[in-house]
Write a protein that binds this DNA or RNA. Structure first.
Length: 696
RNA sequence: GGGUGGUUAGCUCAGUUGGUAGAGCACUUGAUUUACACUCAAGGGGUCAGAGGUUCGAGCCCUCUACCACCCACCA
């Protein structure tokens, strides 16, 4: 036998993966009980981060375990076009490289640039996923913007429209003036800000606002119906009132949305630019007036301020009100939250615009039931509460985006503005006769196509697609709790609406991977740890085990290189214990254990090993991967390597009969092999190498 | 304002049918012609956030309090 190194050489891992692929190890056999995982497609926004390494590590560990149990395992890989995220990055890129904005470059050219981006990053990311050891069937790879996905999206849109679950309507939406698009409520984050808070006279009332620049069109003054201070003012009553640009006629409105405790308990409303105000105005059928345009500039209604940017005009407007003697007081240190686009970073300005919506009410009951009934299980279970809470308060989902990169909306308009929804222009033309049609310029929210992912990847809308029949609903979905609403809930809703089935049976949520200070890793903070660099340094298995071990589902973990060291050392330990067993048993290939001959120590050891195997299976069934790994670590290192192996080593050296030596060797070999089986879920590269180099 | 999770060794964290407190790192002492120094052996270090309750028995179940983290919400 050739000399074996004292270290596991992880640099050969890519070759091992290539061999696995060549041997078609990850192509489902089609035999046995099906077990399917459709991976959460990473955004094609760049390189993978540690969260990806964690999620795919969990999925692959589960997949390998199921495969080892004899199931017909499909792991379907794919990637997401990430409409707004990728568009923002490409816009930044062409701005930097060519000094051009997207409008300067034009839609067609811009999309070419996007594809250049995609084609650059997609292969890199595929390589990374393979480097993580993800045992996926790459023949079934899907991209959310490939032809198949496009077809699925069009079909879904048309069907939902026909079921009246999708509609177009004017509604108050979140407008991002920076990206020039609508975004959904979930794409907003709230940042605290200190800003002056003004109180003005408004007729007989005093009203407070942080945003005087929106107040030009205000002509309704609203208070709580039971507020005694204003009992003498009747709902619908009008009065003359001096305001920014002269006299106006204002109307009193009573509505429960007003908090009597806040400020003066009276407010004026700006329905075009505020959600609450919009709702009040809608309830009372009031006029809605636009004051700010899509670029964040004031419209002619602002009189002398027209054309000015809102932020700049604010102080001057307040000054004018003060000059007119309408200012009561200013609180300079008012803290409030501003809505900011999560992706683009622009300040959100609500606007009323015609947009496409998906109705929530009709499918949310089914989505609640799917989880309540236990058809879909969440791990950790407490996230079910979060899910129910969100669904209960769910409102319609704005699915159109004024972007260029994304799925085109399959809707066409004739010259009179009539809409035709169809899965192709030809079909739309059939409905429209000989009228000239133009397609809706908007694209769909990226989560619309992601929401179809578990079934669109398996062949839907072809309901006879073999993969769909065999592997849907899928068994396991692994993702981060932060996208429980964006993604998990929407997949469940869309699946119920389009297939009548649940999309998956088990959802497993991992926690955030944080830096050593407990802070989120981000490029701007410079605390990002690149999984590929860690793999270069320590090997893929060490990285995987370090992410899986020592934490529990849904809870965040602080992560340092030290943690990888622990498992890199574990890998070395396994390597050397195996090396010792292999080298000492190589002379006699026909080793076997005969239970009758086992001595007490051996018997106890094997009893304990059997217990470990049982516990391992139980832990996997309960999705306690961390516990399973830690138990394995303890057992292998301390029970096996430190004690049992030492015991047999002594026996081999000091034994008086050859039989005793044989027995010791066979015990070691059997014990090692059984442990390697369990280990192969967590450390596939290492175990494969040991088997190939030492035990074949 | 509402919700969820957390508080266990110096640090980072595990720990479910409730049964004498665990790991990694760090620390102390020792070992070595060694499978492995990415090692081994021995050891120090914990009123498991605080208070109360249930129980023969509580890190674990219940109640309250404190602090931390995250999420949600229309406070103009």
């Amino acid at each position: 036998m050739k000399e074996i190194l004292t270290r596991y050489d992880h640099t050969k891992e890519p070759d091992i993966y290539a061999r696995w692929e060549a041997e078609k190890q990850f192509v489902p056999s089609g035999k046995g009980e099906p077990y399917s995982i459709v991976i959460p497609p990473p955004n094609v926004t760049g390189d993978l981060h540690l969260g990806h390494a964690l999620t795919y590590g969990i999925q692959d560990t589960i997949a390998r375990h199921q495969r080892r149990l004899g199931k017909d395992v499909l792991v379907l890989p794919g990637m997401d076009h990430a409409a707004i995220a990728v568009q923002a990055l490409v816009e930044k890129k062409i701005q930097k490289e060519q000094g051009l904005s997207r409008s300067q470059i034009g839609r067609e050219k811009f999309l070419e640039e996007v594809w250049v981006w995609i084609k650059h990053y997609m292969p890199r990311m595929e390589g990374s996923l393979k480097r993580l050891g993800l045992s996926a069937d790459w023949n079934r790879f899907r991209f959310t913007m490939d032809e198949h996905s496009k077809n699925a999206v069009r079909t879904a849109f048309v069907r939902l429209y026909e079921k009246e679950l999708i509609y177009k309507s004017e509604f108050i939406i979140n407008w991002d003036p920076k990206m020039q698009t609508t975004i959904s409520d979930d794409e907003i984050e709230h940042l605290e800000e200190t800003t002056p808070f003004y109180t003005f006279k408004f007729g007989p009332f005093e009203i407070s606002t942080a945003r005087p620049e929106t107040k030009f069109g205000d002509k309704y003054v609203v208070m709580h119906p039971t507020d005694k201070r204003y009992a003498k003012y009747k709902d619908g009553e009008t009065f003359e009132c001096e305001w920014i640009n002269g006299k106006i006629t204002a109307t009193v409105i009573k509505d429960e949305a007003v908090d009597p405790e806040f400020g003066t308990g009276v407010m004026t409303i700006t329905p075009w630019h505020d959600k609450t105000d919009f709702e009040i105005a809608t309830r009372h059928k009031l006029d809605k007036v636009q004051v700010i345009d899509q670029f964040g500039k004031l419209l002619p209604i602002a009189g002398e301020f027209a054309g000015r940017k809102i932020d700049e005009a604010r102080k001057d407007i307040a000054q004018k009100l003060q000059d007119k003697g309408l200012l009561v007081k200013v609180d300079e240190k008012y803290r409030h939250r501003v809505a900011v686009s999560y992706r683009g970073g622009g300040k959100i300005e609500p606007q009323i615009l015609p947009q496409w919506f998906m109705k929530a009410t009709a499918v949310k009951e089914a989505a609640i039931k799917a989880v309540k009934s236990g058809e879909i299980k969440f791990t950790p279970k407490n996230l079910e509460k979060l899910y129910f809470h969100w669904l209960k308060n769910l409102h319609d989902w704005c699915i159109s985006r004024q972007l260029w990169w994304g799925h085109e909306i399959p809707a066409w308009y004739d010259e009179d503005g009539r809409v035709y929804v169809a899965d192709s222009l030809e079909e739309a033309q059939k409905q429209a006769g000989n009228k000239k049609l133009t397609q809706d310029p908007d694209v769909l929210d990226t989560w619309f196509s992601s929401g179809l992912w578990p079934f669109s990847t398996l062949g839907w809308p072809n309901e006879e697609a073999p993969d769909l029949l065999r592997y849907f609903p899928t068994n396991f979905l692994e993702t981060a709790p932060e996208i429980i609403f964006f993604w998990v809930a929407r997949m469940i809703m869309l699946s119920e609406a389009l297939t009548g089935k649940i999309p998956f049976k088990q959802v497993y949520f991992h926690g955030f991977v944080l830096d050593e200070k407990g802070e989120k890793m981000s490029k701007s903070k410079g605390n990002v740890m690149d999984p590929m660099v860690m793999i270069e340094k320590y090997g893929s298995d060490a990285l995987r085990m370090s992410l899986l071990g020592g934490n529990s589902p849904g809870t965040p973990q602080r992560y340092t290189e030290q943690k990888i060291l622990k498992y890199r050392n574990f890998a070395t330990k396994i390597w050397n214990a195996s090396r010792f067993v292999a080298e000492s048993t190589s002379s006699n290939s026909k080793v076997k254990t005969q239970k009758s001959k086992l001595d007490h120590t051996e018997e106890e050891f094997f009893k304990k090993l059997e217990k470990l195997e049982q516990k391992n299976e139980k832990n996997f069934a309960a999705l306690k991967l961390s516990v399973a790994l830690e138990e394995l670590y303890e057992f292998f290192w301390h029970d096996f390597a430190d004690q049992f192996l030492e015991y047999e080593k002594t026996a081999i050296r000091e034994a008086e009969s050859p039989d005793r030596v044989e027995q010791a060797k066979s015990c070691l070999l059997v014990a090692l092999k059984r442990q390697l089986v369990i280990l192969s879920d967590f450390a596939p590269f290492l175990v494969d190498t040991i088997e190939k180099e030492m035990l074949s």
